[in-house]
Amino acid sequence: MEPALAAAGALTTAAAAAALLQARSSRMAVLGMGGVLVLSPLTLSALPPVLPLAFWMVAALLAAFLLLLAARGATDLLPPLPLGGWPEGAFVALGLVLGWAVATVAGPGRGPSSAMAAGVAVAIAAVPLIAFSRDALRTAIGAVLVLDAAGLVATALAGTPSQLEIVALALAVAAAAEGSREIIVLDARARASGGPAAWPEPRTTGPGRSDAPGDVDQTART
């Protein structure tokens, strides 16, 4: 693949990662995650063979579908991220630059630098979701993203992985989504039966930024 195309792939992957951090709707966040997963192979200098690539795409779509199913049973309004979303997005952009710089320093003899840039950006996007988010869905998305980021960084270091490595990582991504889906469903069921919530309900006022455009009907829905 042309380096320019790989660079464009890295840019769009990072953009999808930054966009999902802005999403206050669970569906938009899951779609953003699906976008990151589907775009990730475009950051490679050489696309993997068709079979493992198809396996990865199916696993990515399955992961998005499973989390969409989970989101359907839970509230659609996500609580805000600690810094509100935009600063996290800016960190993702910084991660993209940092990744490229790291790949340049590492020099030749390694994998594609665009994969390193996208990998670092996606990893930075996953940090607030895994470490600071207060809801099961964002944690699930973070778990999926961190695995995707690991695959990208490993590819940037060691070159295009073997076919079975791609299949194994795709399995892990799908497993993360399925495990998360079940946890979200169990949490929703516990709430429905009157039990305490595992995570606090999203705030709809104050620093929750529920007044952001597009959030009005989401708030009303909850």
């Binding site: 994998g111 990893a123 961190v146 695995l147 690991a150 490993a154 070159g159 892990a172």
Partner: peptide, 17 residues
């Protein structure tokens, strides 16, 4: 997930194409 991600990156650290 995090342990798996760290392991995948760590195991690739000393590998090249």
């Amino acid at each position: 997930a995090v342990a798996g991600a760290i392991a995948v990156v760590g195991m690739a650290w000393l590998l090249g194409p």
